[in-house]
Amino acid sequence: MKWITARRRHPLAGYVVVIIALAFFGVGYAFVAPNADRAQAQTVAAGSEEAPVDISNGKQIFVQSCASCHGLDGKGTENGPDLTGVGAAAVDFQVSTGRMPSMNPDVQMPRRDPVYTEQEILDLAAYVDQEFGGGPAIPEQAPGLAPQRSDFEDESEYKAAKEQYEAAYEQYIAGGDTEAGMKLYMTNCAHCHSWSGAGGALTDGRWAPEIHEATPREIYEAMITGPGAMPVFNDTTITEEEKQSLIKFVKDLQAEPDAGGVFSLDRIGQVAEGFIGWTVGMSLIVACAIWITAKQRAHD
């Protein structure tokens, strides 16, 4: 403390306090601010593809977790919409992105860790599809969630599943045509989800979510089911291959390292650039000016 006491009347003390305060503010904000990585790790088990769906299990889950809002007959209540004809893909999308089951039916749900395993979701989707009339089926060709270590008993099994998944993912992403994918994304998606997939504002406090963590399958499902305010892009207007091109474009863009430097500013663009220019750029330069012109003692 003596050290501070001795210097608190130094001509530069005020600036130092301001700089420290700014630094605290900045670092604090970085902690508070939504973290892009928060849900990075969320994955569910890759249920073995061969396992048959268990519709009775699906029914059990439906009764437990869905019926309170959507009704036992799936016709919907005040709290939840009618599920007639929504189909398996919609169920898979809503539950695998953790948006359903929702605790608060009045607000838009952000992406969360899914509550159920992939197998359970498939069971539920099959039940809903069978009971309340079919809609778009789950696009099996698009890779879904990656396998997770905790669902495998030994390491080698997990590694094998993971390798298999990655190979399928690579293969899916490698197919498709960049230009068509880019055009389709830019004309039909970017106006809400932004060029980088970071999402954007809608009216009434709703927002188009960021799609960084969305799996190819979830993107596909969103297009064919039109969750929330999102319009539907069915397979007749944008075909399966075209959707693959679109997903390839999105995933390639997201996977690309930022050539301009490690600080990509979350790819927000000009607003973030202006903010950094003012806060970091101008303050550093002004700090240099203060150093150059600071009052001096003969010995310091």
């Binding site: 830019m186 970017a190 989800h193 050539a259 990509s264 663009g269 000009q270």
Partner: peptide, 23 residues
Amino acid sequence: FVQINPIHLFGPFTPTSITSGLQ
């Protein structure tokens, strides 16, 4: 160290496309 205006990520201009958060 700080990426600015990554035009290679934005993609080329077409008059029919737009991105949200345009600034």
